[in-house]
Design a protein around this nucleic acid. Sequence first.
DNA 1: TACCAGGTAAAAA
DNA 2: TTTTTACATGGT
Length: 290
Amino acid sequence: MGLIAVPQPYDFERSLDRFTFWGVDRANVWHDGGLHRVVAGREVRITPANGGVRIEPLDDTIEPVVRKLLGLELDLPAFHAFAQGEPVLAEAAQRFPGFRPPLAPDPFEALVSSITAQQVSLHAAFAVRSRLIDRFGERSACSGSGPGEGVRGNREVPPTGANVLAFPTRERVARASEAELIVLGFSRRKAEYVLGVARADLDFHELASLPDDEVKARLTSLRGLGEWSADWFLARHLARPEAWPAGDLGLRKAVLAFYPEVTDVRAAGERFRPFQNLSAHYLLAALRYL
DNA sequence: TACCAGGTAAAAA
DNA sequence: TTTTTACATGGT
């Protein structure tokens, strides 16, 4: 009951440390040895278990979201086999044998998170993003009581104390004002981007059925979403194997650190085909723990 | 105190 | 067409 199998080895803490490394993520909260997230209005607790992870509660609505969150779509065994032919990747795979990158389960969350991270350090991005979640995110219906309000009694699930919020919905953000976003630390430009994306005439969920190039074309047609943001959407939301965010500063540093002879980071991605996405994540992990 | 950090669009040249 | 600039926060 409540278990999801994960291909082994799986290093739970190493894989999910992205949610604490750069700062607080109020929508993916690490608490008491587990990761907490609001899924379909309910607080879900994810903890390591023998052969996979324990999910509480777990139902048919929650399972696909958790599978997306944990990056279970990524073919890690195939990547590790591929990595044996590339010395840099082979060493990274050996250092982080159970590392499976987590993904953004929701497309709007992925896009807004990218906008917050444009140009500024991830520390700054996390701070702004957390204030956005605090301001517009909703507490789960059956988690512990919040300041001033909160559901009391008749809880199906006892309060965990994780104090996690759902990432703000597209509909809620669309109703916000530019000034409300600027107060949270968004630049005027980024506030415009976020509102424009929230109000855009584009079904983000439909993008999952389109090829990489078409997804990039549709996203970059929106003001505020450039190639970098579209590439990370492919990599960290759609789990596309060949996504390669060549413009990313961190990835550029990683590639240049491990392949000093490289002059064109975009072209260098070809050597990792068809595993550019996982290669990028492993190179970034290797750089972070250099 | 400055300067830089997982970009982007718009202005200026 | 290519180059330069403004942008706001947090860490060092």
